[in-house]
């Protein structure tokens, strides 16, 4: 587990990370979301042991990470702009990484290269931006580390590649319990990958929750009530987070267990009733509105 406790980091006069505390459980895909400048990269760089925190503690499986080789052997960090040696190709990178990471999966590496259509002999500086990101991900996955830290790595990847990466992650997670931590400023990029999400804003953590928990606890219902009395009774019985009404059609975002909510609706007469799936975006909108933030302004742009 990665434990971040009351961590702060200041660059010159500006506080990039302010008293952040997050726990990242093993064998989950953790999404770190925040606007540009929210402190995502700084948190990841500190977790990777690149930066040293000014205050607080960061522990990788109980080990402090900064300048601690034992802890760092468990981490592979893919920066927002991944670096590859000048004039090198994928083979050169493999050779180097194999000297640094003893568990480096060489055969998997070349299999992935073929699967992703990356030419191992081609110079990396002639790759496209997306190809470089794919290669960086392959390097990270094959390094054999327990934790894979990805900073904006998925931004710009096409859906097919995203699916490919997702299936690799799933495979590695089931095979050796890999824990990817993915930072992004775009919520939609993480929607189909993450199990757990932490929202960073202005250097601090707004929330950190398991996606399933969030999904289970918030329901979206569309319905047309037969009478105003029915409508009033339901609204009074439910913990409504949001109610949009167009004509007679009510779209309700409700906090609570799905079965309980359905039971309440069963007590009244409805002309039309349907329980809708919630997007990560909607969950976030709802959650952050509760704490007084307009998530649309923060993340969705």
């Amino acid at each position: 587990m990665i434990e971040i406790r009351n961590v702060s980091k200041t660059f010159d006069d500006s506080k990039a990370v302010d008293n952040v505390s997050v726990s990242i459980k093993e064998n989950t895909v953790f999404g770190l979301i925040g606007t540009n400048g929210a402190g995502k990269s700084t948190v990841l760089r500190m977790v990777a042991g690149v930066l040293e925190q000014d205050e607080g503690e960061i522990a990788i499986d109980g080990l402090p990470v900064f300048d601690n080789m034992e802890a760092k052997r468990k981490i592979y960090f893919i920066a927002d702009e991944p670096y590859f040696f000048a004039n090198s190709n994928a083979v050169d990178m493999q050779k180097y990484l194999s000297t640094v990471y003893p568990e480096f999966a060489v055969s998997d590496y070349y299999t992935y290269l073929v699967n992703f259509g990356l030419d191992k002999k081609r110079k990396i500086n002639t790759y496209s931006k997306g190809m470089k990101k794919q290669l960086a991900l392959i390097c990270g996955v094959c390094s054999g580390t327990k934790y894979l830290l990805c900073d904006e790595t998925f931004d710009g990847l096409d859906p097919v590649m995203r699916q490919g990466i997702k299936s690799i992650f799933a495979g590695e997670m089931s095979k050796r319990g890999m824990t990817p931590v993915i930072a992004s400023h775009n919520l939609r990029e993480l929607e189909d990958i993450c199990d757990h999400v932490g929202l960073l804003h202005k250097g601090g953590v707004l929330l950190s929750k398991d996606l399933e928990d969030m999904k289970c606890n918030i329901q979206k219902v569309q319905c047309v009530f037969k009478s105003n009395e029915d409508e009033a009774r339901v609204i009074a019985s439910l913990d409504i987070m949001k109610n949009e009404k167009r004509g007679s059609l009510n779209t309700l975002t409700v906090r609570g267990n799905k079965a309980e909510i359905l039971a309440i609706f069963a007590t009244v007469n409805t002309v039309f009733f349907e329980a809708l799936p919630l997007s990560l975006e909607e969950i976030f909108i709802s959650e952050t509105e509760v704490v007084g933030y307009d998530i649309k302004k923060l993340i969705l742009g």
Binding site: A48, M69, I75, Y76, V100, L149
Partner: peptide, 9 residues
């Protein structure tokens, strides 16, 4: 980021 992220003292 690349070099200091590596487990090299």
């Amino acid at each position: 980021d690349f070099y200091m992220g590596m487990p090299v003292k």
